[in-house]
Design a protein around this nucleic acid. Structure first.
Lengths: 344, 344
DNA sequence: TTGAAAGCGCTAACAT
DNA sequence: ATGTTAGCGCTTTCAA
């Protein structure tokens, strides 16, 4: 293995000082054009590659930003990561990724790891398990830009990028009501995560506003998965106040709901079904699934923009921004009750 | 912002030398139990967090491994990233992610970025555009462990983790033949990437072996997407030797194929359809899609294992490993011609 | 415009 | 078992 070229090698070849080489390489204006040229040529000739580590150690800036997400396997988070990277392109920032797999322990470890890696900022979305958020306090204390998105916490005074989840829940219920459904069940998670409680609040509001009773037994608090969807739907359809439409916490859960409904001969839109996240498959299953689009690409883009804005700030006036994006309903067959009317 | 605690602070408090603190913190055996205890306590008391950068600069090991993938938005790559991280858990290694979005330029940039970040190793899968792989030579020259997976290159002497793509193509065609299909079209990419050419080779072999003619006009070389699938299927079904089954380069393309076939009243399995990658949605569309499972989790796990093995090696005897995994057919409705027989 | 030199926080000889 | 010290490769004052 050949020894790596450093700025000392370049300096030696040219008979100049390392400082000059450093300045030339970093495009500082205090270097003569001739010097810069020769430095650049020599650098190329010697196959020089800068050691960012050394620069980071000295300057305190790593040009790496840490991202903490529950999982990259979800389309939602994958899209966000993608658009964060996209939004960072050209800024010189790279992305260090940490997955929590929905575990707080892992999340704490992630914060620690990223801090030790001296990242210049952290963009994170909380795990389902997370309620105590004190592990994020250290980031704030160190004055490192922290941006929370989607699953955020009110106990942290940080910048956030979120959906209007209240509105998402409201829109979901309102859409089903507008389609003519009269009794709407809700399958969501039992975890005390704000996005879910907010959706539920929006759902309740929409029902009340339209004079539709809220049956507490039709709100199923459990997990979110295909299996949970089947289970929840089964439970709802066996209940006393059998709903004629079901909102599921995510599209996978909705998939389970649809499976179950098909089995018992109530294939949507006979019983309406609506999910959250607008996964790729949702447009292609049968019946296609109506879903709330949470615009992950927008979220990612805003996170990147916000980060780039925050690192510009002087340490004194760390501003807190709370960006709220609007959800939209993507109407598909699973909630198209109106189409059924002529057949009744 | 309070100044960060360093080992000097700890040393000063305890009246010992920084080296001792360093040793204690790193669990070296040459420290007395008492010293270690007091160091650990003081570290905690001072809220000490190590600066990995400094350690890395000195030791030459960053404990960060770079991953280069076309996109995290594909379930296949997301699963691999997930299982690489999983496999690295407990080893102390973190993951620095770089997405190429299928562009060589981006890939070259990625290699450069990761090298400058002084990663301890790189795990990569080539972009579709990549044919010249010289940008990877530098990694090898620097003696940094490089592992290529799935989309690899024969011109690089590196360790690889791949599917047996020849077999994948073979199995795909064989499965359809076994189901009773007699004329099998193939929609794949025009890019000269080995996994695709190998699959095609396997496909040809299976056809020949079973005395089925290969119609060159039924092999469509274009892109891979839902749109390309629709387009390809349309073209195939308008051809002179209209196929009774279609293999699509991935599940998204297969989705497009199915859409098209439904439109013209030849919903699978009337015309058989088979995809690659076994995406999440494939089990849930109607008809459900038969697909070749490429076991991304296995691939990721093997990559992680291989990396951990390679960093153990002395620099002299850098071994090259080529791990080949076996694809499997996941049979679903889209290729279930046998079920149709009683109806004919 | 360039040079000299200190030092970022840590590790690893070497010395004791 | 612990201390001393020289860097790792770069940036950044300060001086010239």
């Amino acid at each position: 293995m050949k020894k790596k070229t450093t700025i000392y090698d370049i300096a030696k070849v040219l008979g100049v000082n390392v400082a000059t080489v450093s300045r030339a390489l970093n495009g500082l204006t205090t270097v003569s054009e001739a010097t810069r040229k020769s430095v650049e040529e020599t650098a190329k000739a010697l196959n020089y590659s800068p050691n960012r580590l050394a620069a980071a150690l000295k300057s305190g800036k790593t040009y790496i930003i840490g991202i903490i997400v529950p999982s990259v396997q979800s389309h939602f988070f994958a899209s966000i990561i993608n658009s964060i990277e996209e939004g960072l392109k050209g800024s010189g920032y790279g992305v260090l990724l940490y997955q929590t797999n929905e575990s707080v322990a892992s999340e704490i470890k992630g914060v620690k790891t990223l801090m030790e890696a001296q990242v210049d900022g952290i963009i994170a979305s909380l795990s389902l398990e997370t309620s105590d958020v004190s592990h994020f306090e250290e980031i704030i204390a160190q004055n490192i830009p922290l941006i929370l998105f989607d699953r955020v916490s009110t106990s942290l005074k940080v910048s956030t990028v979120t959906m209007d989840d209240y509105k998402a829940g409201y829109l979901a219920a309102k859409h089903l009501i507008d389609q003519g459904y009269k009794n709407i069940g809700f399958i969501t998670t039992s975890h005390q995560v704000m996005i879910f409680t907010e959706r539920l609040r929006g759902y309740r509001a929409a029902l009340q506003e339209n004079g539709i009773p809220v049956f507490e037994e039709n709100i199923i608090l459990g997990g979110l998965s295909i299996k949970d969807g089947r289970f929840g739907a089964g439970k709802l359809m066996r209940g006393l106040n059998m709903p004629d439409a079901i909102i599921a916490g995510d599209d996978f859960t909705a998939l389970g709901v649809i499976k179950k409904l098909k089995e018992i001969g109530l294939s949507p839109p006979k019983v309406g079904v609506l999910g959250f996240a607008n996964e790729v498959f949702s447009a292609y299953i049968t019946p296609s699934l109506t879903s709330i689009d949470q615009h992950p690409n927008e979220i990612g883009k805003e996170c990147a923009k916000l980060f780039l804005k925050k690192i510009q700030e002087t340490n004194q006036e760390q501003m807190i921004y709370n960006i709220v994006l609007e959800p939209t309903v993507v109407e598909r067959q699973s909630s198209a009750k109106l189409f059924l009317l002529p057949l009744l």
